[in-house]
Design a protein around this nucleic acid. Structure first.
Lengths: 235, 235
DNA sequence: ATAAAAACATGTTATATAACACAAATTTAA
DNA sequence: TTAAATTTGTGTTATATAACATGTTTTTAT
């Protein structure tokens, strides 16, 4: 992590983080502006790790992050793929617990750090802040529960298809309207879909053969959305 | 569901629901007391179902509830076992979504229903209410994520052992200190542990043979906690 | 009290997928 | 610019567990 501006020079600031800033009154805006820290992370930088204690709220202002848990025999399970703007690592904060997952920047990130006491002061004085955080939790819990069922019940093809559709939902397409706006290693795709890397590679190949997707290195195009959704649905 | 007092005559009321009542000031207490409904459910009564829209907040005052999702081919996955006092069905409320799971009373329950607008008024006027709900979400999200990894990565023995330990954590023991204070069908145990009923039965039997647990019908005693924890940990 | 239904139990077979092995391609480092 | 390491790709084998079959016991309904 670096405290200097990133090379790209994109000047993101907390005013562009709607879940927090846009619902505050002028006084609280002033308070927040003078009580947060902007942090920059390069690709592959660790943002927090399992077992660490959160010192405040993290707000992903720009960039992409993967959140994963170490499982049996060090096998990594990606439990969340995060797009900006979104809260990050807030579960541990509100459970008054240590982090039970790790977060890594999968591309350059801007993160706004808000100290614990500042967060709780904002929540106390502004119920809209509270509602936004509640909504984030509710949406994420829904996603996680849905995934539990998919990852345990669907077969490999269904799991992979669903993962690709989730990546579409989270990061969207590039300008061409078919290229997923995220680059992941086969291993990350496997860890997100609960399968071995070999099987992720194999199944991606069969999807290419079936003309459901097109692959060029780590660039994935969804060629036949309907078919992919059918594969995901059938399990 | 019935609106009359249950046969047992246990007079639970919302004053015994600490997550809400104990943090309110006198005015809000009055407001809550005159703006909620007490509902009674018999064993096996459905409390809400997938696709329904929540009309308010449910607070489980007494009794036990299972929350499950319909998966592939109608296969049911229990995503939460609830003990009183606890919030229930609140994810959909705060996500402004329909229920994505169903809730069924596994024994007689008392539930306090608080209409949506009353809930939001309480949250606005009292940040401690908000914090309590945030904590519930945070704890539950942690549990759900932990489970996702266990249910996908652990083998049958580990999954079943873990489920039994979770049931112990959630419902505790009876007075003898070894009998789980919850009665479940083998099918429910299977649906909680992501396995077929046959395999749940089979694995319970091997645990009995290994003197880890003792079983009499639906009554389960944990005879060797250390061994059970080891089985759960090894996966 | 008896029939019907549901739950429990156990043995056998089929199969999805992990595990393993190895090669090729690509990226990183020296 | 060459070597080393990592990632990607593919074929084979082993195995955990679902699926199936069938019988027994317990519960529920009449």
């Amino acid at each position: 992590m670096s405290d200097t501006t990133p090379e790209t020079g994109n000047a993101f600031d907390i005013k562009d983080f709607p879940q927090l800033y846009s619902v505050l009154n002028d006084e609280d805006k002033e308070f927040l502006l003078s009580n947060h820290v902007v942090k920059y992370y390069a690709k592959n930088d660790k943002i927090y790790g399992e077992g660490e204690k959160p010192k405040g709220l993290l707000c992903l202002g720009s960039g992409k992050v993967k959140v994963y848990k170490e499982g049996i025999g060090g096998r990594e399970q990606i439990v969340r793929m995060v797009a900006a703007p979104n809260f990050l690592g807030y579960r541990a904060l509100f459970a008054e617990d240590v982090h039970i997952a790790s977060a890594v920047a999968i591309e350059e990130c801007t993160i706004f750090f808000i100290p614990k006491d500042v967060v709780f002061k904002l929540i106390s004085s502004n119920s809209k802040v509270c509602k936004n955080i509640l909504r984030s939790f509710a949406v994420e819990l829904g996603f996680t529960r849905y995934r539990t069922v998919s990852l345990t019940q669907k077969h490999i093809r269904g799991r992979l298809a669903e993962s690709l559709l989730f990546l579409r939902d989270i990061y969207g397409y590039k300008d061409d309207g078919i290229t997923l706006d995220i680059q992941l290693s086969r291993e990350d795709i496997a860890n997100f879909s609960n399968m071995t890397t070999s099987n992720a590679i194999r199944t991606l190949s069969t999807f290419v053969n079936e003309k459901v997707i097109a692959v060029d290195g780590r660039t994935i195009k969804i060629v036949d959305e309907t078919k992919l959704e059918r594969i995901s649905k059938l399990g």
